[in-house]
Every structure is written in structure tokens, then in C-alpha cells.
Amino acid sequence: MAIQDITVAYTAVATAENGRDGRVSSDDGRLDVVVNPPKELGGNGAGTNPEQLFAAGYSACFQGALGVVARQEKADISGSTVTAAVSIGKTAEGGFGLEVAISATIPNVDTATAQSLIEKAHQVCPYSNATRGNIKVELSVV
């Protein structure tokens, strides 16, 4: 797969201090959060963690992509939600990896239409494009 080339429209900048057990903030001050490893990874779980932040970004971005596709298809996605479940675990090589499960609820369309919409959104979403071919991403309609 070739590296994607884009015309940059916006750049987000965030800085981490002390890695997974510290703080993350954006250059504009709108994001400033304490991060701690979850209890499942031996941390205290007091703050948020990178996987939660990734899940938040991916779900919001995917919902936006779903909106783009719905407008093109003239489909009513009002009242829809998108949930991203980001899992972390050890790889066979001894490092760590991620996998994602995206689930969408789209109440105003039938299941087949909803499935088609999320599959098309998966082709449009920048997070999906960034992860495609790198990690497991499952899509489902709930």
C-alpha cells in the first residue's frame, strides 16, 4: 500500500509528558488531561488513557464520515451513534498492538442500508484510512 499524500487543511498538535503516566495537552490549551495506565495494564486507572483518547477521536471521525456518506446517499442518519472500542494487547513479536471494533446504531434505516453506509464511511474516514492494513478493524451495526 502506498503512503497516502494529502493537501493539509489542519494540523492538531499535542504534547505528552511522562508517557502513559503523566499529562497530555494540546498547543491551544483546549485539551489538557491526566493520563494513567488502566488497572488492566497495572496502572491506577485514575486518569484517561491513550486508548480512550484514540477511541474518542476514531468514533467522532467515523460519525463525521458517516454523515458525509449519508448526505451523498440521501439517507437519514439522525439519532445515530458510533462507538469505537479500542483494545490493546501483546503482539506475537513481543511488542504491543491495537485492534478496533466500530459499532453504529442508525435507527432510521434498515440493517442492510446501515451496513452499506458504515462500509462506505470506513472508506472515507481518515482514521480508517490511517489504520487500514495495519490493525484489525471490525465494523458492525447494532
Rank of each mutant, 00 (worst) to 15 (best):
V68H: 13
P37K: 13
V8E: 03
G19P: 03
V137S: 03
G67Y: 02
S80V: 00
T48I: 03
S25F: 11
F54C: 00
A65H: 07
P126A: 06
G89E: 05
T11P: 11
D28S: 14
E40L: 10
N36G: 09
T131S: 10
A14M: 10
C125I: 04
V82A: 05
K136M: 10
S87A: 14
L53R: 06
Q72S: 14
E17F: 08
G22L: 02
T83M: 08
V86M: 03
V82C: 09
R71C: 10
K74I: 11
R71K: 15
V24K: 03
G43I: 01
L117C: 08
V109H: 01
T11F: 10
E99H: 14
L139K: 02
G42R: 02
F54Q: 04
A12W: 05
G95K: 07
G79N: 08
V24I: 12
L139G: 02
P38D: 02
R20S: 04
E40C: 06
K90R: 14
S103I: 03
V109F: 01
A92Y: 10
Q4F: 13
I6F: 06
T81D: 09
L41C: 05
Q4P: 09
G42A: 12
S25Y: 11
A92F: 09
D28E: 13
E17Q: 14
D5L: 13
N44P: 01
P37Q: 12
N108Q: 12
L31R: 00
L98I: 11
A60W: 00
Y127D: 02
K39I: 04
V109N: 03
L117R: 06
R71Q: 15
N108P: 09
E138N: 15
A70D: 00
E93F: 08
V86E: 02
G97R: 07
P50L: 04
A9V: 13
G89F: 12
A70V: 06
T15W: 02
A104Y: 04
P126K: 08
D28K: 11
A104W: 03
Q52M: 05
Q52F: 00
G45A: 00
I88Q: 00
S26D: 08
S26Q: 10
V137L: 04
T83F: 07
D28G: 08
D110K: 09
D27F: 06
A56W: 03
V124F: 05
D27R: 01
E138H: 11
Q4V: 15
G133D: 12
I135T: 08
G45N: 10
C125Y: 00
G95I: 02
V109E: 11
G45L: 07
G95Y: 03
L31V: 12
A112C: 09
E51T: 05
K74Y: 12
V8K: 13
L117Q: 00
V13F: 11
E40T: 14
N49V: 00
T7H: 10
Q52W: 02
L66H: 01
D28F: 04
E40H: 14
S26A: 14
A60H: 14
T15L: 06
G89Y: 12
T15G: 01
D110C: 12
T131N: 09
V137Q: 01
P38C: 08
P37R: 04
F62E: 05
V86K: 00
S26V: 00
A60S: 15
R132L: 03
S87N: 15
V24R: 00
K74W: 10
S59V: 07
T105F: 15
T105G: 15
A84D: 05
A56K: 07
A75D: 10
